[in-house]
């Protein structure tokens, strides 16, 4: 395998032997103080896949997704060992600035969290912190991002009104648009629909289907039907361990591990 092949474009099909991972987690352990929250995680997450992470409360799925863009750093007293490679670069390395990582990897949170600013300013925020001041570029990006998040038609006439005036589902799509403005490579979603009603949930799910054309998506979800509907691959977490990671069809139809079977058939969790 030559270097040029490794660096070749995303759509290259010359990579039959070496799978192209956006994220490769190797022997990751994480502790909150004395609590061993993630145990020896090994996961290779493929580009342009929708990867769902499922598991009961407290299984470490949220912790894991927050580690992927190092939001976990904000929690005091967290220790990790092992590595997570993002496109073959160790995210814990000193040479990989956390600001760069979070620019390349967007995140959508459990509760919609737009800034108390206008819809327009919410999208422009990301550009402004990265030093983009050109009005025209910002205007175009705002429109493009809102279109990308299937929100443009609903808000185009009130871009300068407060984002808090939007419904919960619209706010969450605004948060997705805010991510898209930075042209991320990966989008992490931490239970993005858990605070939404069924109709808004459906819209976000449809949006995820569209987004997977361009982005790699990793989604933590409580809702197993959701994982089955939208994901290509599913990882089942239990007590801080990955019990099973496979194609979503396999996980839901013929899981290899009996615990996975118990969980998806609703016997616990």
């Amino acid at each position: 395998m030559t270097l040029t092949a490794v660096n070749s474009t995303k759509n290259s099909e010359s990579m039959q032997n070496q799978e192209l991972f956006v994220y490769n987690t190797k022997n990751l352990n994480l502790w909150y103080g004395d609590h061993h929250a993630l145990k020896n995680i090994n996961l290779g997450i493929k580009e342009k896949d929708v990867t769902a992470i499922i598991g009961p409360s407290g299984c470490g799925k949220s912790t894991y997704i927050k580690t992927l863009n190092r939001m976990i750093d904000l929690v005091p007293g967290v220790k990790t060992n092992g590595t997570i490679e993002y496109r073959e670069r160790d995210i814990f390395s000193k040479n990989f600035l956390v600001e760069e990582l979070r620019t390349r990897v967007g995140m959508v949170f459990q509760k919609p969290n737009p800034f108390p600013k206008s819809i327009y300013e919410n999208i422009a925020f990301g550009l402004k912190i990265h030093g983009i001041k050109n009005k025209q570029i910002i205007n175009e990006t705002v429109e493009k991002s809102l279109r990308g998040a299937a929100l443009w038609d609903e808000v185009k006439d009130r871009l300068h009104e407060p984002a808090y005036g939007l419904s919960g589902g619209q706010q969450q799509r605004l948060c997705i648009a805010r991510c898209l403005a930075l042209e991320p490579d990966v989008i992490l979603m931490d239970e993005p629909t858990s605070a939404l009603d069924p109709v808004s949930t459906l819209k976000v799910e449809e949006l995820i289907q569209e987004l997977k054309e361009k982005y790699s998506i990793i989604i933590v979800t409580h809702n197993m039907q959701q994982a089955a509907r939208i994901s290509d691959k599913t990882a089942f977490f239990l007590n801080g361990e990955v019990v099973e990671f496979d194609a979503t069809d396999t996980i839901f139809n013929s899981p290899a591990d009996s615990r996975t079977d118990d969980y998806i058939s609703g016997r616990f969790g």
Binding site: M71, L74, L101, P116, F125, I129, H130, C175, R178
Partner: peptide, 26 residues
């Protein structure tokens, strides 16, 4: 709210940018 700070950090903002653009206005 912590969620607002997380939103800012999640977009790659530095600590000072988060303080100046999110924390102080609020």
């Amino acid at each position: 709210p912590n969620e607002l700070k997380e939103a800012s950090f999640g977009l790659g903002a530095t600590k000072w940018q988060t303080i100046y653009r999110v924390v102080l206005p609020y």
